[in-house]
Amino acid sequence: MKPSLGAYDWWPYRDRPKVVWPNGARIAFWVAPNIEFYELDPPLNPTRRAWPRPYPDNEAYCVRDYGNRVGHWRLMELLDRHGIRGSVSLSIALLDHHPEIIEACAERDWEFFSHGIYNTRFTYGMSEDEEREMIRDSIQSVQKATGQRISGWLAPALTYTDKTIDLLADMGLSYTCDLFHDDQVTPVKTPTGKLCSVPYSLEYNDSIAFQVNNLPPRRYFDMLKAGFDRLYEEGAESGTVMCIPLHAYLVSHPYRMESFAQILEYICGHDDVWVTTAGEIAKYWTENYWDAAVSDIARGNA
């Protein structure tokens, strides 16, 4: 084990080269529905158990299955109402299990990135070959089902090896959502390839908000509003990114949707918000700001 993976260098949040998003926007806003498949009887990973109870953990399984059976459609229609294209954090096996969901997302020109094969198969303990196979499976399966070439990654259940980040870059991906160190896009240091980090806003994640921090639904709205207001203000200085990572098995319960729906209305009601996808943010930033960022970071660490 290492004290740090050294995936990025320190970069002070002051005097950074100014980022301006398309059409003069000051904040890039994206929504990430995690569309996940959890297995009832997953393989046992030596580092982490998938379920707390012995097989079958029917309740924990069903709580998540609800997201696909009931919740997804609700969330998709809510995003439709605000003209938001989802950036889907996808359990790749869901292409096989629930193609109706994939077709509906693809019809809406939503973007897909990989969230591993199943959210019950963890990266811990994988060999480099196994990890490369997971990435290859992700790229090929999405391409086959939708014609789309994925460019991003969020590790399944946020599980890693110390090679994960380097392998993503080496296999041609251009962004990762796995780093929570910044409110702006940043370059990631990898031996090969060109990978940036697109902020995925850990605490705005409904999973953290509802399952870890136990927020009441209406308080989730307050938190997102406070976060947006500050990122919007600071974005005038240099373009910021706000992501709301979501899980239909959590946010799509009616008692949460009723107040959550208002945050999208609030954010999309502002001028100078670039409502976009993770891949478009990564592409625009890499094309326009990669070099300036890399040299500014080098200067700050000289």
Partner: peptide
Amino acid sequence: SSKPQFPDDPMRRY
């Protein structure tokens, strides 16, 4: 693992 991580899993299906 009680099952391999990347089998040709018959349960990865419709």
